[in-house]
Computed example of a mutant assay.
Amino acid sequence: MTQALRPHHVAIIASDYQSSKHFYTEVLGLKVIAETYRAARDSWKLDLEMAGGVQIELFTFPNAPKRPTRPEAQGLRHLAFAVGDIDAWCARLAHHGVEVEPIRVDALTNARFTFFQDPDGLPLELYET
Score class of each variant (00 low, 15 high):
123 P>K: 01
11 A>S: 14
48 L>S: 07
64 A>Y: 11
68 P>S: 06
26 E>V: 06
61 F>W: 01
31 K>C: 06
97 G>L: 03
82 A>S: 15
49 E>N: 13
49 E>G: 12
73 A>I: 14
57 E>N: 15
5 L>H: 06
8 H>A: 15
81 F>E: 00
78 H>Y: 03
58 L>Y: 03
65 P>C: 04
1 M>V: 11
28 L>P: 10
11 A>R: 01
120 D>S: 02
61 F>Q: 07
11 A>N: 09
22 H>V: 02
5 L>G: 08
113 F>S: 03
40 A>Q: 15
106 D>Q: 00
120 D>C: 10
80 A>I: 05
6 R>K: 12
60 T>L: 01
46 L>R: 00
15 S>Q: 05
33 I>V: 13
105 V>I: 12
11 A>T: 06
99 E>V: 14
89 W>E: 13
84 G>R: 13
40 A>C: 02
116 F>E: 08
77 R>W: 04
63 N>L: 11
117 Q>P: 04
123 P>C: 08
81 F>W: 10
59 F>T: 00
127 Y>Q: 00
67 R>S: 08
21 K>V: 05
39 A>W: 00
15 S>D: 14
29 G>Q: 03
4 A>R: 06
13 I>R: 09
88 A>H: 06
4 A>S: 04
4 A>G: 13
3 Q>D: 10
109 T>V: 09
93 L>P: 15
20 S>D: 02
109 T>R: 04
84 G>K: 06
95 H>K: 13
106 D>M: 09
80 A>G: 11
82 A>V: 11
59 F>L: 10
75 G>Y: 05
52 G>V: 00
85 D>H: 05
75 G>M: 07
111 A>G: 07
41 R>I: 12
2 T>D: 15
26 E>W: 09
118 D>Q: 09
77 R>M: 09
129 T>W: 06
31 K>Q: 10
4 A>H: 08
120 D>H: 03
119 P>I: 02
75 G>Q: 02
43 S>K: 07
86 I>F: 05
42 D>I: 05
29 G>N: 05
47 D>L: 11
34 A>H: 07
91 A>T: 13
56 I>R: 00
99 E>I: 08
113 F>Q: 01
124 L>N: 03
84 G>I: 10
18 Q>T: 09
69 T>H: 10
96 H>V: 07
93 L>M: 01
67 R>E: 14
107 A>V: 08
90 C>L: 00
54 V>P: 05
18 Q>V: 05
